[in-house]
């Protein structure tokens, strides 16, 4: 068993736990927090599995996830604050 497999199990377990929190709520912020954590863990999952399967070029993908996750997160925050995306006030 390779060390990458061990790390992958760890990351997958964390993803499962984050998913459980996303389901449980109770507030919307808990869910957003879980979604953010899930995104970070997907980045790690892809990095680790890329190494495990000998395809380290998947890191481009991990990079993209890190960026997209942030964009989605800011959109969620903005919406949860203003109920639309167009408000001219700066986001807090």
């Amino acid at each position: 068993m390779s060390v990458f497999f061990v790390a992958m199990i760890g990351v997958l377990t964390t993803m499962l736990l984050a998913l459980a929190r996303a389901f449980m709520g109770p507030t919307v912020f808990d869910r957003v927090l879980a979604a953010n954590m899930f995104g970070t863990k997907t980045v790690l999952l892809i990095a680790v599995s890329g190494f495990m399967l000998g395809r380290p070029e998947w890191l481009d993908l991990a990079l993209l996830y890190a960026l997209m996750n942030f964009t989605g997160m800011i959109a969620l925050l903005r919406f949860s604050k203003f109920d639309n995306l167009a408000n001219d006030e700066q986001i807090k």
């Binding site: 996303a22 869910r31 979604a35 899930f38 995104g39 997907t42 993908l61 996830y65 969620l76």
Partner: peptide
């Protein structure tokens, strides 16, 4: 929001 997670899963 959960669709975002769903899509992360399918991309994985």
């Amino acid at each position: 929001m959960l669709f975002g997670i769903f899509s992360l899963l399918s991309a994985g």
